[in-house]
């Protein structure tokens, strides 16, 4: 025992570093367990409180610029609202004629961005709403310009939103014009990628990409971005498609959280079918 203690004392630096590396590896391998989530939730709360205080400092230049952008946006939106009203009335008439189900409207909760962590590939924002406001993980985040991301962690008064410019973010998407489906991903850089679009599919530069009905957590029809580049690689099955996000994340200050959770009936049915298929294949 005495000898063992001597060895520990003699090599204490190595014991300390080994122990800490083991603890770190334990955290890495248990990233989503309850204990780590609880610690993360407390940290989100404390950091959100600090960031909330800091966000009170006014940015005069930023406000002026934002004001100008909002005025322009207001003019464009007024024209669009008028057009959409017409379209909605027409849509309602057609729905009634066809007896189709109503898609329903989103329930939105406004939130302020009190912190941004634009740390290379895993970009997140801290929002000043949390569990006490009914916010839960996986709720989609949008702005007036389009899809921002989804909630990944919450505390009582704050939430962390994973941006679409985050390498872990994926969602199904659709080209508005041609209804071609794909998956949105981001691998760094200024552009998003629309993946899994075969070479036969019709897609052009300037096409608008929106969320599709295949996502369980994000409602359909939310603008994601505009296609800027379509590359056809001879050796690949799919096209390489780049799109510019419709949201400017560098100036993101206010967002809305869509307070809907995945449709449990749909999720249960899909899970049941998947389970049955797996059972058959086994």
């Amino acid at each position: 025992m005495q000898r063992f203690l001597h060895i520990i004392v003699a090599f204490k630096e190595y014991f300390v570093v080994t122990l800490l590396i083991i603890i770190s590896l334990f955290f890495i391998s248990n990233n989503d367990n309850t204990q780590v989530r609880t610690i993360r939730s407390y940290t989100v709360g404390i950091l959100g409180f600090i960031q909330d205080g800091l966000s009170g400092i006014p940015n005069v230049v930023g406000l002026k610029r934002e004001n100008e952008i909002l005025r322009k946006l207001n003019v464009n939106l007024s024209a669009e609202v008028s057009r959409l009203r017409e379209a909605r009335l027409e849509n309602l008439r057609l729905h009634e004629m066809l007896g189709m189900k109503n898609r329903g409207e989103f329930s939105l909760l406004a939130a302020e961005v009190v912190g941004k962590s634009l740390h290379l590939l895993r970009n997140t924002v801290t929002l000043n709403v949390g569990e006490d406001d009914g916010i839960k993980s996986d709720m989609p985040i949008v702005s007036e310009l389009g899809l921002v991301g989804k909630v990944i962690a919450t505390s009582s008064h704050y939430a962390i939103g994973q941006l679409i410019i985050n390498k872990d973010f994926r969602t199904s998407a659709k080209v508005q014009r041609s209804r071609v489906d794909g998956i949105i991903a981001w691998d760094g850089g200024d552009f998003l990628q629309l993946k899994n679009v075969s070479k036969k599919q019709d897609i052009k530069e300037g096409d608008i990409v929106i969320t599709s009905e295949y996502s369980r957590i994000i409602p359909r029809g939310i603008k994601i971005g505009i296609v800027t580049k379509v590359i056809e690689n001879p050796g690949k099955l799919f096209k390489d498609i780049e799109l510019v996000p419709s949201v400017d994340f560098s100036s993101l200050e206010q967002v809305f959280i869509i307070t809907v959770l995945p449709d449990s009936e749909r999720t249960a049915l899909e899970a049941k079918i998947t389970h049955t298929n797996n059972g058959k294949s086994n």
């Binding site: 570093v17 800490l20 590396i21 603890i23 770190s24 590896l25 334990f26 955290f27 890495i28 391998s29 990233n31 780590v36 610690i39 993360r40 940290t43 989100v44 950091l47 962590s117 740390h119 895993r122 997140t124 990944i152 962690a153 962390i160 872990d168």
Partner: peptide, 20 residues
Amino acid sequence: LFFDLVTGNFIGLAALTKTI
């Protein structure tokens, strides 16, 4: 570890690398 918690991602990675 604090940095991992603050950024809310990949808990343990910065702890590991900064320990080294």
